[in-house]
Design a binder for these strands. Structure first.
Lengths: 335, 335
DNA sequence: TCAGTGCGTGCAACCGTTTGCACAGTGTTA
DNA sequence: TAACACTGTGCAAACGGTTGCACGCACTGA
């Protein structure tokens, strides 16, 4: 068995409470006693028992991150990766641990269990795992939580961080227009999500008055995207394509190749997200990159505030960053 | 305050221990009493307090996964992603939670703290975070742990799971030779890791007697990889290149393009790992894919066994899967 | 009929730490 | 010099479960 606070107390000849106070600095203890306790702790290789401590204090110093298993995208892109890393970092800086929970889609049983069982002090929840019931439950329990991604409903009521998809779309579109393509076309999957809506909004905003608005919905069916494009927008020449995903960008690029329309000379491509190999495509894709590290960081920082009693419901947008590569033409024309 | 076991006991008119036994099924309780307790629990919205429980039982029902922050590769590829998902799934099936710890490189302080503070009952550790001190510590404390990736040292002593890099290299090389390229060349970063060594071994094994052995070390400097290749292997025509990473594969492909050597007609490429866009390269890369889901799954299952007292030190290799695409030629020549 | 066995339940200790309250001693201030 | 504040420490309760032991009762087999 490992040493307990009582063992230390006995050795040093003080009461357990004194040892506790030395450990936590919760009361002034004479230097002499402090030193003796410290020494004994070292000698006996004492380490506070986190289990007992959370039991006594009523907090676990652990925050939960729910990940959305059903959402395959969570894994395929690096979103989760770097966010997790950032969250862990922030929590660690505050002496908190990170617990991963899974929203299995069935019900929020695991999430609820964590909260009700008091295994975590706070929660970071992807907006896709959020429903009215969960919001109500958490609000009712006054349980600290932060949402990643702008929620579809009741967004004003809850704290969240999200990528500034609107700004990203604006910048992407402007990059295309600025590069000299007379028209910009948005190609997206019509999945009713808030971020899709925001991207659409950004595109519209940027395109306003400068060229007509053309939106093609891919509906996750990419194989015949080329045909669909031709059918809906006519000639693909002299168009700039704002693609909602790397995959869409790739299929768009392939369609252009088949039509022998050169990129970036005759058509441009800007894509959302920046997969590892996006810069190695031919030509390399100009990408609207999301700093997922920052996203996680902000979420965690916000949660820390919530857990420390601040009640302000705030919202934060992370700016995207346009990585200009060859596919949008500007770098070429510059020469 | 939420209801406690004592509240339930009082309401029903039994002792707290009876309630506890109903919850845990640790002793036979009459159907009638059980029913009344169940009802009361429901009515009072009782949920066992995990903090109190772990304090009493001495276990947390939580396992830790240490991630290696310093290792950027952990994030760029999907390794971490799917593994985490799998681990969480297995743990959840056993009513365990997953806690993420970070090996910040400085010292294993956080890891040690988790173990010494008894915040977790077991640990999954990437081999890159493993050193002799940590092994000794864990073994000494008889603390359950499983290593992800074959450890560089003392591999026989500890339980681990790893990708069968050797088998992957064999299959990749054979694919190239079978496809008709007279010679297979391995291009790798010389980073002294176990997995590099295993890949090299696999390559050698496959090449044996069939063609001469040619290994080019890129040393993480890819820009002049083309020149280096020409210098070290001479003509790049009629060669099959086994690339240790997607990035190497990309630069190899570029070098071939500049030399106007057609892929797959005049040279072939097989790459380790399968980044999201690997299949969209031109031509699509034949890849040695790793089932990281399975990797995590096995690790978690192994850990569960360890935590349940089994002491067998075992090692498991996950088979890689060759995804044949155009870059290795076979699909082309088939027509 | 009696010892033995199993079922159903309660008692009370225990897990390791924190913390409100009390109190003695030592300054400090008016 | 009395009243007060502050420092340094101990006592004991509390946090919410779990569990070994004991016990009463009903049944079984000899």
């Amino acid at each position: 068995m490992s040493a307990t606070i009582k063992d230390i107390a006995k050795i040093v000849g003080v009461s357990p409470s004194t040892v506790s106070r030395v450990i936590n600095g919760t009361a002034p203890i004479s230097d002499e006693v402090t030193a003796r306790i410290r020494k004994a702790m070292k000698e006996m290789d004492y380490h506070p028992n986190a289990r007992a401590r959370s039991f006594a204090t009523g907090v676990t110093n652990t925050a939960g991150l729910v990940m959305n298993a059903t959402n395959e995208a969570t894994f395929s892109n690096s979103f989760f990766n770097r966010s997790v890393f950032a969250i862990e970092k922030v929590l660690q800086d505050h002496a908190y641990n990170l617990l991963i929970a899974n929203d299995n889609g069935q019900s929020d049983s695991q999430i609820l269990e964590l909260v009700q069982g008091k295994k975590v002090d706070g929660l970071i929840i992807p907006s896709s795992s959020l429903d009215d019931r969960l919001i109500s439950f958490l609000q009712n329990a006054e349980f600290p939580f932060v949402v990643m991604g702008e929620p579809a409903r009741r967004a004003e009521e809850v704290p969240w961080v999200d990528v500034d998809n609107e700004q990203g779309a604006v910048e992407g579109t402007e990059e295309l227009l600025r590069s000299g393509y007379p028209e910009a076309v948005l190609i997206a999957d019509d999945d009713e999500t808030v971020f899709s809506r925001n991207r659409l909004r950004g595109y519209r905003e940027a395109v306003q008055l400068r060229c007509r608005e053309q939106v093609v919905m891919a509906h996750h069916r990419y194989e015949d995207l080329g045909k669909k494009l031709v059918k809906e927008v006519g000639s693909l020449q002299n168009k700039g394509f704002l693609c909602a995903s790397n995959e869409i960008a790739f299929y768009t690029r392939r369609a252009l190749k088949e039509l022998e329309i050169q990129v970036p000379e005759k058509a441009g491509i800007v894509t959302f997200d920046n997969y590892p190999l996006a810069e190695y495509m031919d030509p390399p894709f100009t990408a609207i990159d999301v700093d997922t590290y920052q996203l996680g960081e902000k979420a965690a920082e916000m949660l820390m505030e919530c857990m420390h009693g601040k009640k302000i419901v705030q919202h934060q947008l992370i700016r995207t960053k346009l990585l200009v590569r060859a596919s949008s033409g500007r770098t070429i024309r510059r020469e």
